[in-house]
Design a protein around this nucleic acid. Sequence first.
RNA 1: AGAUGUAGGAUGUCGC
Length: 319
Amino acid sequence: VVPCTTMVTGYGENGLVPEAEQLFQAMPFHDVVSSNAMLTALCQNGLLDEGNELFNAMEEKDLATWSCMVAAFANHGDSLHAKLLFDHMPVLNRFSCTALLAAYSQSVEVEQAKVLFDSMPEKDIVSYSSLLATYAHGGYIDEAELVFSSMPEHDIVSTTAMIDGFFQAGRLDAVTHTFEMMPQKNSCTWITMLSGFGNHGRLQAAQKLFDALPEREEVAWSAMLSSYAQNGSFQEVFRQFDELKLVRLPDESCFVSFLVACSHTGVLSSGKNCFVSMSFDFQITATKQHYCCMVDLLARVGRLEEAHDLLINKPFVAE
RNA sequence: AGAUGUAGGAUGUCGC
């Protein structure tokens, strides 16, 4: 059971949920630790309903079980259920409290977060970091800086949260300084920097970061493309999208940026080709956003009937 | 004799 649990965790961390489930079913027996491992695999891969089902079916639950589930609701944006579940916990520790802090963070309830944080008997870098992120992301830059300077140590996560706060406050000088002082950075740090500069219209700075990326993963392309699209730099979107197609498969959000660029520049043929190719060549199902871009594009170039047809035939309710 | 498994914090797009 112990090696199986290790495997279930490993599968889950790498997004291999079916493999995790298969192994979990094949295990000689389940104890609370192995069930927690499976629960985590489900929740961290966005399968909240399946996770909830397993949670309800578990005969034995411990602090890890509850904390995992509270965090799952929080990360899913459902802070109401996170709080409800937290209130039903038989005992608490710093893990469960930090999970609830994340719920307060996502609903920007800074006062509640502070009260909870102050009431915690044991705090560590993760709980400090969570409070810091709540302030930083909510635009409470003074409070964020205070937490940052008073916490016992800094790591990549807390420093990246602080950078996010500086961006929210428009303190780009502090952003650059903090970034340069970091002894280590990870992909979240880079994406925070890149999209932060993009959101402030500093496209050259963003592009420079993109070029310097140690590893260009999907989110980096997505962040760069949407920065250009939102800034109206549509030629840059076309250029970057072509570059992207040479090295990896564009994801759904990259197609949105491309279609936005097509519609705003009125290039019907590229837009149409892209829309079709997305499903046929890339096996990506068109979402509401993609349909909106296409309707926009058709309408802009005067194909009102086609736009209307698409609006009628799209698999969504028109708004 | 000793050693192995699970839970909490920051990042793109859409939505809220």
